[in-house]
Design a protein around this nucleic acid. Sequence first.
DNA 1: GTGGTCTAGACCACT
DNA 2: GTGGTCTAGACCACA
Lengths: 127, 127, 127, 127
Amino acid sequence: MFQLDLKSRKSIYEQIIDNIKELIITGILQTEEKLPSVRELSRMLTVNPNTIQKAYRELERQGFVYTVSGLGCFVSPPDNRLVDQRQINEVRERLRGDIMELFYLGFNEEDIRSLLQEMFEERGECK
Amino acid sequence: MFQLDLKSRKSIYEQIIDNIKELIITGILQTEEKLPSVRELSRMLTVNPNTIQKAYRELERQGFVYTVSGLGCFVSPPDNRLVDQRQINEVRERLRGDIMELFYLGFNEEDIRSLLQEMFEERGECK
Amino acid sequence: MFQLDLKSRKSIYEQIIDNIKELIITGILQTEEKLPSVRELSRMLTVNPNTIQKAYRELERQGFVYTVSGLGCFVSPPDNRLVDQRQINEVRERLRGDIMELFYLGFNEEDIRSLLQEMFEERGECK
Amino acid sequence: MFQLDLKSRKSIYEQIIDNIKELIITGILQTEEKLPSVRELSRMLTVNPNTIQKAYRELERQGFVYTVSGLGCFVSPPDNRLVDQRQINEVRERLRGDIMELFYLGFNEEDIRSLLQEMFEERGECK
DNA sequence: GTGGTCTAGACCACT
DNA sequence: GTGGTCTAGACCACA
């Protein structure tokens, strides 16, 4: 399904959230599709079940998945997902900082535009 | 100089790093300019000196400033920046995640491109 | 594990770094082996935990260990070492200074060569 | 005469000591040759005179130079220099650590031997 | 349990 | 004055 990077500074449950989000956003996990159970994913990633639980709970809070007691965890339809302006602003600010840092690292506008294009194409493929 | 957001999930020293980075990248702090001393900034932000020093040390590690013991902390000239591939990859990955999140939040490619253009223009102004 | 020299001019955290580096380089601490936790080593050496953490963080920065929050600190596999030219140059310069000092202290080229050979053999043994 | 590296982690007075030691060891500054006066060197390096003073005093303590009141500071003849076993051991230990670190950074015995040879030749030239 | 952050306050070396 | 190190002790998030 995906790999964790223990060496990363990101905590494990954040990595799980981000990975699953990405699988949903790119459409690899489709609406209403069932996610692996907590215990199953726990075994797959050799990670403490509590950690998986915490990630699932946060994904639910953000509206990406919903849980049916006794059945499991499923991908929400897109319009159930929580989209608030605050979240958009957060992403924008992060994006802004990263763009500035790329400039600082020697990238120019053109470089960044083609980097973006690359990412668009990469997304096109997984969709 | 800048304000801290104590409610932020970012730690204080990270906020300091990001703020100073931005002041340097946008040219508000110029090459060889002296940063406030550890104690001075500590007073300005009412933050413990150790926290400031931690931020300064990390900025030094990343090549944004250099420190002369007994004199203070100064903005590095651009060519002394530590540009290693690892750093670039980190930014790329963050950028990638943000772009994907924007898609999820309802942005399309065109929206993102104009967002980028906005940022380029904003940068043009402060330069 | 090792002893600190409180009379040394080297700071405590530097001594810790150097000692652990040596344990790793000589293979006494093996790849993926867990280092003592911050608090544990703190107790072993009767040194403040902050000081240990500073050492661990620097070792991480240099690529000798990696940290998993909540789990502990582990020896990096050799290929994850951060080998940047800057680091090599630092060692070279130190080496150069030491060689020159040996000349000054009355050693000649042959003396230094056999000193080197001694060190090679010593290393052969611990490997 | 020589350049200081303000970005270095070494303190300024240590850099001055090391540089002058090297000039003496390599013979660029010859026995009985007069060193620049404190004020003169202070201007040359744009460094506080107290810092120069401190470096000269330490060089004197180590036996590299001697001071004649009212006349200046002169290079000592080699046999006046202070050579104690403790000093030799310090250098040896540093050397040992550096060699080990080179191994860790991917150098093998042969690499190190030729590195050494390089340094010998470099020294031959300045002598 | 683990690491990560922060404060308050002390002491030292260097400029 | 400057930065650098260290301690003691607190609180948080994560596994």
